[in-house]
């Protein structure tokens, strides 16, 4: 496949503080292929959000390189057009839906991104209708965002990014402020965009149950990547997860608890069904009706 979609090399970042800069990321190197569904997890202050903001140049790295499609975006010679091209390709959905919506009518807000790109009116109309259909908000096209629920607002925010036809969408704790229903909706949406439209999805989260749904989990701790792999592999290393200050997903912690009683469960335990099967295998039973 050659060059990966995103290649991060020895990335460093410190927050400015005259005398003693506060390092947020240290020597981070990672490749993300086009079409991957990646969850980035870590406790507060682990650098996971900083990492996300560096990928579309909301922050500028203080060291190292980020290559998007082979182009070094940490290069100082980036023109404004280059920056816009990166931001068009890598969209970002934030935590608070209220702070992302610009217009007073849902469809006008979805049109905001494409309008900024200078796309002809008829094409914007088409994109807006398609994006709203994708997130299932078509019937709310003429509503005011203020009258929608948090989950609905967040779906409008996602539509606003989808209408720009990005190659990748970063969800920066986009589910943190939502109620359980809204959260489930948004996570379904991530999966759908990834599976059906081939969009690379990077989700920054501290909900372990969301992270297990990704193809790949990257764990940050103290500004460094401490684990990177399939969810089942990463969560199998319970000691590492706890060291990173994270909770195990419920299934993994059940398996962990069983271990204390001498029952060792092997295999993929990322979903309740798979976990139940693995436990049954371990205790030598078979799953009834």
């Amino acid at each position: 496949m050659g060059e990966p979609f995103i290649r991060v090399e020895n990335l460093e970042f410190s927050y400015d503080d005259e005398e003693n800069p506060i390092p947020a990321l240290r020597n981070v190197s990672v490749d993300i292929a086009s079409g991957e569904y990646v969850a980035v997890i870590g406790r507060n202050g682990s650098g996971k959000s900083t990492f996300a903001k560096l990928l579309n140049l909301i922050l500028e790295p203080t060291g190292g390189h980020i290559y998007i499609n082979g182009k070094d975006i940490a290069d100082e010679n980036m023109t404004d057009e280059d920056v816009f091209a990166i931001r068009r390709d890598i969209g970002m959905v934030f935590q608070n839906p209220d702070n992302q919506l610009v217009a007073t009518i849902v469809e006008d807000d979805v049109a905001f991104g494409p309008e900024n790109l200078g796309i002809p009116s008829a094409e914007i109309r088409k994109r807006v209708d398609e994006a709203l259909a994708t997130v299932g908000m078509s019937e709310f096209a003429k509503h005011e965002p203020a009258r929608l629920s948090g989950g609905q607002k967040q779906r409008v925010a996602i539509a606003g990014i989808v209408a720009m036809l990005p190659k990748c969408i970063i969800f920066d704790e986009s589910t943190a402020m939502l109620d359980p229903v809204g959260r489930a909706n948004v996570v379904d949406m991530m999966e759908k965009l990834n599976r059906e439209q081939g969009i690379t999805v990077i989700t920054i989260t501290h909900y372990m149950n969301e992270a297990v749904r990704a193809d790949r989990v990257i764990v940050f701790n103290d500004g460094e990547i401490v684990a990177d792999g399939k969810p089942a592999e990463v969560y199998a290393n319970s000691e590492l997860i706890q060291r990173a200050g994270l909770d195990l997903p419920q299934c993994a912690s059940l398996v962990e608890g069983l271990k204390a009683y001498g029952i060792s469960v092997d295999g993929d335990c990322t979903t309740p069904e798979k976990c139940a099967d693995a436990i049954l295998r371990a205790i030598g039973g078979s799953r009834g009706k």
Partner: peptide
């Protein structure tokens, strides 16, 4: 936060902007 979100959506003033 709104300013950051607008930047992410390529907002750069009125120049070269179209309307739906």
């Amino acid at each position: 936060e709104l300013a950051t979100a607008m930047e992410c959506r390529c907002y750069h003033g009125g120049n070269g902007r179209t309307k739906m």
